[in-house]
Design a binder for these strands. Sequence first.
DNA 1: TTTTCCATGTAACTCGTTACATGATTTC
DNA 2: GAAATCATGTAACGAGTTACATGGAAAA
Lengths: 169, 169
Amino acid sequence: MERELLLLGLLRRRDMHGYQLHEFIERFMQTCVDLKKPTAYYLLDKLAQAGYVAQSEEREGNRPPRRVYTLTEAGEQYFQTLLAQNLADYLPARFAGSVGLAFLDVLEAGNAAALLRQRRTVLANHLAQAQSAPPHGGSFQLVLEHQIVHLQSELTWLDEVINRLEGAA
Amino acid sequence: MERELLLLGLLRRRDMHGYQLHEFIERFMQTCVDLKKPTAYYLLDKLAQAGYVAQSEEREGNRPPRRVYTLTEAGEQYFQTLLAQNLADYLPARFAGSVGLAFLDVLEAGNAAALLRQRRTVLANHLAQAQSAPPHGGSFQLVLEHQIVHLQSELTWLDEVINRLEGAA
DNA sequence: TTTTCCATGTAACTCGTTACATGATTTC
DNA sequence: GAAATCATGTAACGAGTTACATGGAAAA
């Protein structure tokens, strides 16, 4: 449901068309959702059919006409419901990367440390990118903040694991 | 790929049948993977067809016969490859719950705080459960440790957000 | 003039889930 | 005798992705 929540929430601020929504989400929300273009259009269509958003064609010059979406009353209600649900519930993140950790002892300590140092580089890059992102208006800043706090905690822990391995080597 | 990695890694320690594998994963690995029974059987079949595991029927008394899987040489190779990849790469977790945070300012501060306190309860439960889990052998302990560190960081941050909201109210 | 950007979609496919089916065995 | 457990699957479905198609406009 979080994709719908996001789309509705963005439309709540101002009317937008699909391309615009997709672009915004890709640029600023990549940390929590990743929705492709076809999915965006599909979801918008579904929301429109459910009556949560209204469409209106708009053309500027000879450019391809665009379908602008507006939040309806029902949409606002639905948004509030989804928002309350999303905030009240904590759905634990799945760490696909943890699986490998379970088999760390399969490898010789030096070898394992080398691989984790590679992981550390990737992680540090993510963190640097998050930290260099321009500040965002309102609560959107919270999302970024959360991401940074999380990545920092990850980095600290990874360093500790690497240290242990190198101490053992 | 992390599901395959997990299955191969478990079979590497000892031969197991599908039911056993599924049960183990559900009980001890729920933090990083969640694979249902049909998926487990499907995956094992795929791994068998690819030659990474070998099957052998086994029956105990009149109980339903079970298909025991054994890691092959090729499977061991594949496991090593997957493991190295998994360790070297950091794939950022997606926080579906963050979406709601982006729209926190839509709600009146007290209201928002109330919802987040609910979230906090759920989160605290997850943490308590992770902390009370019995220690695991070898590197499996790392997975649990990681989960605990993560949940603690989440809780700390959540508390800070709630504090800010209550300060503003 | 060729590439990139704007703007929207469709079709086919993959992955995984739900719900269902089977049947023996142990536990209540 | 009923329910839960052991053990394996199939069939139908759903959500989301990839690859493809279209076509004008701006930029290189």
